[in-house]
């Protein structure tokens, strides 16, 4: 599915830790319209669970959480 979804905005949050991984993901989503897709890349392991959970709590749709290399994870979210 990775290639099937058009990503509208991508942010690199490598080096960021909780809660700023969530805070910045949330701010980025606020820049988008409903239905648009955000992809964030993180390398802070707790964020791999925390960011999708927190965004899900706010009603957004988590499309994919995938490890893309040794250190980095990609989280794809559709804005509610």
């Amino acid at each position: 599915m990775t290639e099937a979804v058009k990503v509208d905005l991508e942010i690199d949050l490598k080096g960021e830790v909780c809660p700023y991984t969530f805070v910045k993901s949330k701010l980025a989503l606020e820049e988008l319209e409903s239905g648009q897709v955000l992809r964030v890349v993180v390398d802070h392991l707790p964020a791999v669970e925390n960011v999708p959970r927190s965004l899900d709590n706010e009603g957004h749709q988590v499309l994919e959480v995938v490890q893309i290399n040794d250190s980095d994870w990609s989280i794809t979210i559709r804005k509610a």
């Binding site: 905005l9 942010i11 690199d12 960021e16 700023y20 910045k24 701010l27 980025a28």
Partner: peptide, 9 residues
């Protein structure tokens, strides 16, 4: 719509 680093918000 550019891809942006978090700090560019």
């Amino acid at each position: 719509l550019p891809a942006i680093r978090g700090s560019a918000l």
